[in-house]
Write a protein that binds this DNA or RNA. Sequence first.
DNA 1: TTGAAAGCGCTAACAC
DNA 2: GTGTTAGCGCTTTCAA
Lengths: 329, 329
Amino acid sequence: MTVTIYDVAREANVSMATVSRVVNGNPNVKPATRKKVKEAIDRLGYRPNAVARGLASKKTTTVGVIIPDISKGFYAELARGIEDIATMYEYNIILSNSDQNEDKEIRLLETMLGKQVDGIVLMSDAITPALREEIGRSSVPVVLAGTVDLEGRIPSVNIDYKGAAQEAVSRLIGNGHREVAFVSGPFDTVINRDFLLEGYRDALREAGLELDEGLVFELEDSYDAALEAWHATDRRPTGVFAGSDELAIGVIHGVLDAGLAVPGDVEVIGFENTKLARMVRPRLTSVVIPLYDIGAVSMRLLTKFMSNEEIEDPNVILPHRIEVRESAK
Amino acid sequence: MTVTIYDVAREANVSMATVSRVVNGNPNVKPATRKKVKEAIDRLGYRPNAVARGLASKKTTTVGVIIPDISKGFYAELARGIEDIATMYEYNIILSNSDQNEDKEIRLLETMLGKQVDGIVLMSDAITPALREEIGRSSVPVVLAGTVDLEGRIPSVNIDYKGAAQEAVSRLIGNGHREVAFVSGPFDTVINRDFLLEGYRDALREAGLELDEGLVFELEDSYDAALEAWHATDRRPTGVFAGSDELAIGVIHGVLDAGLAVPGDVEVIGFENTKLARMVRPRLTSVVIPLYDIGAVSMRLLTKFMSNEEIEDPNVILPHRIEVRESAK
DNA sequence: TTGAAAGCGCTAACAC
DNA sequence: GTGTTAGCGCTTTCAA
């Protein structure tokens, strides 16, 4: 039924070791025999069995990718970066959604290790102690992509979220706004609570402004949540820094619904710079997070670990910037 | 170093066959020995090696997923449906991007088959003869998700794209429009050329309207392309059916830029009903494609093939509908 | 209910 | 340059 290396060996009158050599591009084969073997391979339609190879060599050339939700644009973009570099280094990817569920994350790690992946890229909102411990037990390297481990012991690729938030808020303050709101996704996400919120705080402090709790909105990270929150509150900040583009757009539409103008009455800055940002009117000013690059660099970092290359710095910080469009100058 | 089934056998004073039985839930094991083995497994921290298992059993419990571009919302949503059902049936997924490149698609099929996947879900814009042949040679089942094979020989899950387009266009005509444009993505995509365009044609014919080539716009499938096309043309249709939400929103903004109103002067219907549709003003009326369900059902179909269950119909058509919002009544 | 033994298809010494 | 020979860690008859 299936053609094995042994069939090829017989067909070409060589040993299976020789066939293995030509399949793996080992130079220690006489050109003539190489040709003979290649012909036999073509004639028989032989295709190496990667599972057998994996068992014998203890390498599967596949890496695990654990992602909160591939249907979210944020993660899909990261995943694309990861996959491209994986392909470049001839790895395949086993992709699973964790839904931010710690149990599921741990279970996925387990099954991926069981499948003998050569490494793992993990995306998560928060590295809990249990998860950290599980990662520590892993027999293969693990790299975090767009994910912060507060203890900083796991290799990772990120941007300076806090600095980015601070810049955005400072920009708003610099434009003359004294009442600047922070519209955030859930604070059980490390990036929201420990970085964006802190960046917001720092910017206020730097400007000598008091933190006004009433201007901090912790919402579900969705357009509707922001829209409704704006309708529900009677606070009227003139500057808004949102923790995501979706939130920002919700705010903009809330403002417009209230008969106010953006950026005339309220300036809004988003976070992520999805393609959405260009597809709303007024166009959204937003902090650019290089998601594709974060994915790509994290995969590259993982390949270095997997082939024992030297690592300069296991915690990479990529640059960010603010793309200024119409919703805020 | 790594704990094997053999280590567990010794630890529990049984044979490896017995360990294998308890690991695989085989009922032919005395409860007492089962307990003994389980304890040994815990004590040693044994984790079955899926690669060895795959080699011995010829089943890997992983399926391949070939997708044009995971960073596109359309496909990311499909992928989520696929993955959820795969997880439900305890399969893992090897995910790769093909960029709609025939060579890459064929190469990916090859490497996935080499990795001994138990089945494959394929998404593509067009099943070319070479691709069809490669699929035919596959030793494992292949299911198309959101992808049409014009020869209809490959199992697939879709909606009635043509019927959906026809309904959308008829709706516009029914609203009194005599000049209805079709703003489409590239016609090298089967769905665009053979279904949406045909549905558009049928709707016109049904209404006794002449097809006006000048009202058919074949564009890159992007917001910018639609926006620019609208700026560039001097045609002023009062109804527009777009082949995607992005194109539809581009059209809407083009219309607004021209000082006209939506839906007052121009009515627009999109296709796909992404979350974008609710996040623009006016909100977009759009044909609902149940992407998640298409993914889920295609994976379910694949599991049936993989376990030799009976298949009622290998070509599934899921229902669609039009979600009416503000851009068209 | 349990064990012994033969592979699954390949890689990787090691010898020649 | 090429062949021989052990495994890799597991499943799966077949016997007992």
